[in-house]
Design a binder for these strands. Structure first.
Length: 155
DNA sequence: CGCTCGCACATGG
DNA sequence: CCATGTGCGAGCG
């Protein structure tokens, strides 16, 4: 697959944004920057960069561009699409998401773990039913930072 | 109250 | 096969 990518310095670290012609394929924290690569998905990359810059500037925006779901299972696709609809500054528990989609709470956690896109799919807005932040692929600090940044009560 | 245990689902290593 | 980004109910101090 011919991919395009770019890097963006943000308050939570260096972000690497990657996309195919179908949409974003990955958004994650990278150690060191590499050369950018334009390709079929470049438009998706720039669209995300625009969103990210506004997000970190404090605007209550959400990424509404395309995501490349070619590698996702049906459950993941449904779950991620649902999570993408959770509005800025709001949170929902794993159980709530599970009830909305007919999935076991634990299955929701499993699905969230596999989210390939930081920010594009606001996985950080899904927390424990009792208010605890929960895990975040080994980066709980990032999750807590994002929630605080959006003005969510620390709990 | 607070802590532990067991169970249920889906995914990735 | 096993350990997760969980929730809920039960049991025990």
């Amino acid at each position: 697959m011919n991919l395009a990518w770019a890097f963006l310095e943000t308050p939570i670290g260096l972000l690497r944004v990657e996309a195919s012609a179908a949409g974003l394929t990955r958004v994650h924290l990278a150690g060191a920057p590499q050369n950018e690569a334009e390709g079929p998905g470049w438009a998706h990359v720039t669209r995300f960069l625009d969103f990210a810059e506004r997000y970190f500037a404090g605007e209550p925006v959400g990424y509404a561009g395309a995501l490349d779901l070619s590698g996702a299972t049906p459950q993941q696709a449904a779950l991620w699409r649902y999570v993408q609809s959770i509005p800025y500054g709001r949170t929902q528990s794993y159980a709530q998401v599970g009830r909305a989609l007919g999935l076991h709470p634990r299955a929701v956690g499993a699905g969230m773990r596999a989210v390939p896109w930081l920010l594009a799919v606001p996985a950080h807005r899904v927390i424990h039913a009792d208010g605890r932040v929960g895990g975040f692929a080994g980066m709980e600090g990032v999750k807590a930072w994002l929630l605080a940044f959006e003005g969510v009560n620390p709990a």
